[in-house]
Simulated assay, not measured.
Amino acid sequence: MARSGRVVLAGAVTGLLLVAFGKNMQSTPEQAAAGVVPESIDIPSIEVEAPLMKLGLKDGEVELPPYEKPKIAGWYTGSAVPGDEGASVIVGHVDTKTAPAVFYKLRQVRKGEAVKVRRSDGKVVEYKVTAIEQVHKDDFPLRKVYVDDGLKLVTCGGKFDYAKGEYVDNIIVYATEA
């Protein structure tokens, strides 16, 4: 994802959306006490095996993994721990200025394919892809990504706008627990 793009704008609006829908995307008290977090993601169909880092909000926007670590994806800590009820969001870059990044092939994922997330408590949660969409960043589906149950994988895609230094679209993969 070039620069911060508008995925971060989606994060800025997320708080308002959650209030409107009355959902709490934070981990449960039991998870917080146990420190359960997702540690890695495995998408066999596109040969992705990557560690996950924690991503929070910074200045009201969802943080992104650092560009100097292109093979790492990030779990948004304001979302549910994968395997638990709620929306769980994992973000990764599509590329850097010089090379493909962790979610470079994300647009190639197809319905029915598996996504596995390993958690710090040893549990491996398996998901089945239910939908893939490419949307203009101005039309980012906030409710579907940040409120509706299931795993969402988000990266940039579409054409690159050199004037803005970012992609014009997002690629979003939706998955439900298998």
Rank of each mutant, 00 (worst) to 15 (best):
T28R: 08
V115W: 01
L153M: 05
S45Q: 04
G5A: 08
A12Y: 10
G56F: 13
K71N: 14
P82M: 05
E68D: 15
E39G: 00
S40A: 15
E39Y: 00
V125E: 10
R118N: 15
L16H: 11
T98R: 09
E126L: 06
E166I: 15
L142E: 12
G74M: 02
A32K: 07
V48M: 09
L55Y: 03
G5W: 02
L52P: 08
K58W: 13
A34W: 04
F140M: 08
A10R: 07
K164C: 03
S45M: 06
P38Y: 06
R110A: 10
E30H: 00
V8K: 10
A114H: 07
T130F: 05
I43S: 11
Q31R: 09
F140W: 07
L18C: 11
V36L: 03
I90W: 05
F140Y: 15
R107C: 02
E39T: 13
P70V: 01
G60C: 02
V81A: 11
V147W: 10
V115P: 13
A99M: 15
A131R: 07
A178V: 14
D95R: 13
L151D: 05
D138P: 03
G35V: 06
P29N: 08
V109S: 04
D149S: 09
V37E: 11
G112Y: 12
L57P: 07
A50S: 15
G22H: 01
V135Y: 00
G92R: 03
S40D: 09
G86Q: 05
E113M: 01
G165Q: 11
V37K: 14
V7R: 01
M25R: 13
R118E: 13
G11I: 03
W75D: 04
K137F: 00
P82G: 02
G86I: 00
V102I: 13
I43E: 04
K164S: 08
D59C: 00
Q31E: 15
I171H: 01
N24I: 10
A32V: 12
W75M: 04
K152L: 08
T130G: 07
G74C: 04
D149C: 01
P65K: 11
K58C: 12
K137E: 06
D121Y: 04
I72M: 09
G165V: 07
R107D: 15
I90S: 06
P65Q: 02
V19W: 10
P100G: 05
P66R: 06
F140L: 14
A163G: 01
L55P: 01
K54N: 14
V154R: 03
R107A: 14
V89L: 13
A101K: 06
V168M: 12
T96I: 05
S4C: 10
C156N: 01
I46C: 02
V94D: 03
A99V: 12
L142M: 12
Q31H: 05
V115T: 03
E85W: 00
D169V: 02
E166P: 02
A163I: 12
V81S: 00
G74L: 07
T176E: 15
S45G: 03
D42Y: 11
L18E: 15
K97D: 14
A175C: 01
E39M: 12
E39C: 04
S120T: 05
G158D: 03
K71R: 14
K123H: 13
R119M: 04
S45F: 08
P82Q: 06
L142G: 15
F160C: 00
I90H: 01
A99I: 10
L106Q: 06
V102A: 10
